[in-house]
Every structure is written in structure tokens, then in C-alpha cells.
Design a protein around this nucleic acid. Structure first.
Length: 400
RNA sequence: GUGGUCGUAGCUCAGUUGGUUAGAGCGAUAGAUUGUGGAUCUAUAGGUCGUGGGUUCAAGCCCCAUCUUCCACC
């Protein structure tokens, strides 16, 4: 039994010409920073409100690895999680999740979900994929079986999964990449986007609530391509826009340059999502450029490998120097694991390859990232963001 | 006691008819990791080749003694 969404009744929801008959998620900007393009706002979905800017923990296969949804929700206060179309499509299969009543019902997470379309995964498959005019033929990394993914297919699958925000099917342009290929790749992403938008308009969510489709800017590291792509994406009138193809190996300065350029073109009154970014410093710098949404595997994947992000800097908990450090992971932390466990104990867990080590580090890191976003929102609302950011970037990235 | 066998890095082991500075895997110590492989990759440290003699231009390798491991037989 799917609950009737209260947000279907929102009065000032508006219809966009290209997204006719779709009720959008709302975005309201509450505060703006005077010294940068940072802003703090509120996003409304059928599964609840999200304060921005925010970070989305990555739950590839429908779960954030090494975490219960209770911790994700009640301990670290995640507002939304990200999941992956490609992985869920291959396993357990869309039919199973649809039969469960959608991804929210399947994994028990009742807050908002965003699904990535699978474009990035197919990009990272490397040799076992082939582009055609229609889409991409790729081989499953699980059993080698062949699959054809098209823009229409990506939309259909995401309709069945039922995430609140779904992503257009794009090609994540590799780096480095010459301008000719970057242009061809961008054009392909634009062509696919048109098909995604068209198909999105003809279909609806299978599980009784609304979904929003975000298009993705490409263009590699070429300013003129980024500008062209951002204009095309902006012209679609979507309720939120994403920037892809960054943080794929290019220097950080280039990433900021492209992000700033694109943010200046994408609509000011819609949320902007910088895909796959990044380190705490990357995120703070990008907030200053006007980004509202982030996702990244760093806090979870690197956490599982022993890298801890703390308010005073970065720790490799496997280093010998922590073996007899009985101080808590984060003295001023507000996550259970921060005060409950010492550095020496966590090191012991990692050295012993205990599963608990991955659990503690994941909880801690995500707690830290989400605290960082909350603090950023507070600093923006109080008008102190830029000075605070300057101090934090240095402090957070130093090695302890 | 007799005969055979084993001994090389923290661990498990390679090491050619004697020939450059004795290697590997694991472990250890560090580093990488950006729309997820609990994955992977990279680097570094670590050896009186059981011990003591001998042969030889040259010995982990051949010879002698001795200690040690395991096996068989009295």
C-alpha cells in the first residue's frame, strides 16, 4: 500500500514546457553567501525535505556498505541516499524490486533516494562495452552476459526502481580526452538526453509518487564545450541539473574552473549536483561555486580501507603510530562511533580485518561528511561561510 | 645407538653441473583511491643461507665435525 503523497498538493509547483504533466520537486533558496556563490536551501520530495547543500551517501546495491539504515537515518542523519541503476538492474533485477513495491520498500529506507543512471558504471567497465547509435552494449561484470542499455531503458528501469530523483543516461567522458572526442561524446549525451526527456514524459513512476529527472552537463575540460553543454542542459527546464565528467583524474584547479563556468549558466533557482565529488576540500570549494548536491565513494570506500576524515585532518588508522592512542576518534563528534571507540581499538580492528572496523570507519566518515554539510549550511545562513571555508580547507586536508 | 632426512626473510618455500649485489608469496611498514570491487595497485624495510672448520680464483650448493627437524630400524 503506497501512501498518497502530501506533496502532490503543493500549490506553487509549476509545469515546465518540456516536462509537461510532471510535478517537480521544489527548491527554495533560504540564504545566500555574500562573498561567494554558495547558497543554502530546501528541497522537497515525496519522501521528505532535504536541507541543502547536502551529501548523499553512496549505496550502490541498495545499501550503504557496512551500515544499517537505522544508523544512516538516526545516528548520522543522512537526508537522502544514492543507489545505482546498473547494479540493481543486474542484481537482484528490476522485476524483484518492482515486485517489492520499489526500492524504498525493498531496502526499508523511507527518505529520499537518487539513482544514478548507469552511465558512469558503463564508462568504468572499460573494454567490455561498445557504443552504438542506440545506446551501449555492455557485458555484466557479474556473469559476462550481454545487455543493451539505451536512454529509454535507463528511464524504464529507474521508473521501476522508483527513486525520487533519477539521472539521465549519459556518457561520462574519460580524461584525458582530445577535444574532438569530447565534442562527439557531449553530442551523444545531448542526443541521449533528448530521448530520456521524451521517454520520461511518456512514462510515470510505478509506485505512487513523483520522480524528477536530472540532465547532466558534459564537455570534459574544454570551456567552450562546457558552456555549450550547460546551455543545452539549462534549456531543458529540468527541476535540477547535474555536472558530470569531472573528478575523473583532471587537476583540481581544472575541476573548479569547469564547475564555476557551468554554475554561471545553469539556472540559479534549481539545485545543482556535482557528480562524484569529492574530498572535504573539493566539496567546500564547490559549494562556494554554487553547488548544492554531492555524492562520493571516498568517505565509505576509503573508510573501509582505513582512511578517516576528522575535524582536525586525515588519519590513516592502519598506521603504527595509532597503536596505543586511546583517544576517541573524534573528540567533539556527535556520532556514536566517534566517542565510543578509540583510535587504538579501531586500528586493531583493521589490522585484524574485523568487519567492525569497516562499520566504525564508515559510520564515522559519513557522520563527518554530513556534519560538514550541516556546518556549511549554518555558516552560509550566518554570513560567515567564506572565511570559515578558508580555514577548514587547510585544516581538513592535513595529514595527522 | 645405527642409517637416512631437514635447516635460506617474521611465516611458507624457490634457488640450474659451484659463477654478478641470494629471490617469491604471505605478513610488516608506508603511499594511492572522487556518479563503489570490503577490491586493487605501488613502494620500502627485513637474511652471518643452523653453527664451526675445510676445498676452490669463487660456496646457499662440494667435504668434515657439530647442533636441530622428521622418519625407519635396534
Amino acid at each position: 500500500m503506497v501512501e498518497k503523497s502530501p506533496h502532490n498538493k503543493i500549490k506553487n509547483s509549476y509545469l515546465c514546457p518540456k516536462f509537461s504533466n510532471i510535478i517537480h520537486l521544489q527548491f527554495e533558496i533560504l540564504h545566500r553567501d555574500s562573498y561567494s556563490s554558495a547558497r543554502a536551501g530546501l528541497l522537497t520530495t515525496d519522501h521528505g525535505l532535504i536541507e541543502s547543500p547536502f551529501f548523499m551517501p553512496v549505496g550502490t546495491a541498495g545499501a550503504v556498505k557496512a551500515m544499517h539504515i537505522r544508523e544512516l537515518s538516526d545516528d548520522i542523519h543522512a537526508q537522502i541516499m544514492l543507489s545505482n541503476t546498473y547494479h540493481l538492474y543486474l542484481r537482484p533485477g528490476v522485476d524483484i524490486i518492482s515486485k517489492a513495491g520499489g526500492l524504498h520498500k525493498f531496502n526499508g529506507w523511507s527518505k529520499p533516494i537518487l539513482t544514478d543512471s548507469g552511465g558512469y558504471q558503463i564508462y568504468s567497465l572499460g573494454d567490455i562495452r561498445k557504443f552504438t547509435d542506440d545506446g551501449v552494449i555492455f557485458q555484466s561484470h557479474i556473469d559476462g552476459s550481454k545487455h543493451l542499455f539505451t536512454p529509454e531503458k535507463a528511464i524504464d528501469v529507474q521508473r521501476e526502481l522508483g527513486a525520487d530523483i533519477i539521472m539521465a543516461f549519459d556518457e561520462c567522458t574519460p580524461y584525458p580526452c582530445d577535444e574532438a572526442y569530447a565534442r562527439k561524446s557531449m553530442k551523444r549525451t545531448h542526443y541521449w538526453l533528448s530521448r530520456c526527456v521524451s521517454h520520461f514524459g511518456k512514462t510515470e513512476c510505478q509506485h505512487g509518487y513523483t520522480q524528477s529527472l536530472f540532465p547532466i552537463v558534459q564537455g570534459s575540460v574544454y570551456p567552450e564545450l562546457r558552456v555549450e553543454s550547460a546551455r543545452f542542459i539549462a534549456s531543458q527546464g529540468a527541476s535540477g541539473n547535474a555536472i558530470g565528467g569531472l573528478s575523473v583524474g583532471e587537476p583540481a584547479g581544472m575541476m573548479y574552473e569547469m564547475t564555476g563556468l557551468v554554475c554561471g549558466i545553469l539556472p540559479e533557482d534549481k539545485p545543482r549536483y556535482l557528480m562524484g565529488v569529492g574530498t572535504p576540500a573539493n566539496i567546500l570549494e564547490s559549494i562556494a561555486l554554487g553547488i548544492d548536491m554531492f555524492d562520493c565513494v571516498i568517505p565509505t570506500r576509503n573508510g573501509r580501507n582505513g582512511m578517516l576524515f576528522t575535524r582536525s585532518g586525515i588519519i590513516n588508522i592502519k598506521n603504527e603510530k595509532w597503536k596505543d592512542d586511546f583517544s576517541p576518534l573524534e573528540r567533539d563528534g556527535d556520532v556514536f562511533a566517534d566517542l565510543q571507540y578509540t583510535k587504538a581499538f579501531l586500528r586493531h580492528m583493521f589490522i585484524s580485518k574485523e568487519i567492525l572496523g569497516a562499520m566504525i570507519a564508515t559510520t564515522h566518515n559519513l557522520g563527518f561528511y554530513i556534519w560538514l554539510m550541516k556546518e556549511a549550511r549554518k555558516q552560509i545562513s550566518e554570513g560567515t561561510f567564506s572565511a570559515w571555508k578558508g580555514r577548514m580547507v587547510k585544516q581538513l586536508m592535513q595529514r595527522l
